[in-house]
Deep mutational scan, measured.
Amino acid sequence: PKDEAKKKVKEAIKRGDEETAKRIAKKYNLDWDDAKREADEER
């Protein structure tokens, strides 16, 4: 599900692992900028 994928993307971003985050986002066709902004807001 997309929500689960987005959570994984945000967790990867918070760990500083943007490569993984981008790969997950691409795989699930998520909006990378959107997920990154959300992760930054939660930090």
Rank of each mutant, 00 (worst) to 15 (best):
D17L: 04
T20D: 09
A21Q: 00
A21P: 01
K7M: 12
A35Q: 05
A21T: 00
D34V: 13
K27G: 03
N29T: 03
L30D: 00
R15F: 05
A5N: 05
K6G: 04
K2Y: 14
K36L: 14
E38Y: 06
K6V: 11
R37K: 10
N29I: 03
N29F: 06
K14I: 13
N29K: 08
N29D: 12
E19R: 09
D34W: 08
P1F: 14
P1D: 15
R43E: 13
K22C: 08
R43I: 14
G16H: 04
R23K: 14
T20Y: 12
I13D: 00
A12T: 02
R37E: 05
E42H: 07
G16Y: 03
Y28G: 01
A12K: 02
E18M: 15
A25E: 02
K26I: 12
A5F: 09
K22R: 14
K22N: 03
E4F: 13
T20P: 01
D40W: 12
D17H: 05
K14Q: 12
P1S: 15
R15C: 10
A5L: 08
K2Q: 14
E18S: 06
E18C: 15
K36D: 03
R43Y: 12
E4V: 12
R23M: 13
A39S: 08
E11F: 02
D40C: 12
R37G: 06
Y28N: 07
K36S: 06
L30P: 00
D33K: 06
K14R: 13
R37H: 06
R43Q: 14
D40T: 10
L30S: 01
K14F: 13
D3Y: 12
E11S: 05
G16V: 01
E38R: 03
E41Q: 13
K6M: 15
P1E: 15
D34M: 12
K14N: 10
A39I: 11
E41D: 11
K14A: 12
T20V: 08
R15P: 00
K8R: 14
D3P: 05
D34G: 07
D40E: 14
K22Y: 07
K36R: 09
E11A: 09
K6R: 13
K36Q: 09
E11Q: 07
A25G: 01
D33S: 08
D3F: 12
K8E: 11
R37Q: 08
E42S: 08
E38D: 09
E18T: 10
D31S: 10
R23V: 10
L30C: 02
R37V: 06
A35T: 11
E42C: 10
D34T: 13
D40S: 10
D17A: 03
V9F: 11
R37N: 07
V9G: 01
E38K: 03
A25I: 03
L30G: 00
E38I: 04
E19T: 10
D33H: 08
E41N: 13
K10F: 14
N29G: 15
A39D: 05
K10L: 15
E19S: 08
D31A: 04
E38M: 05
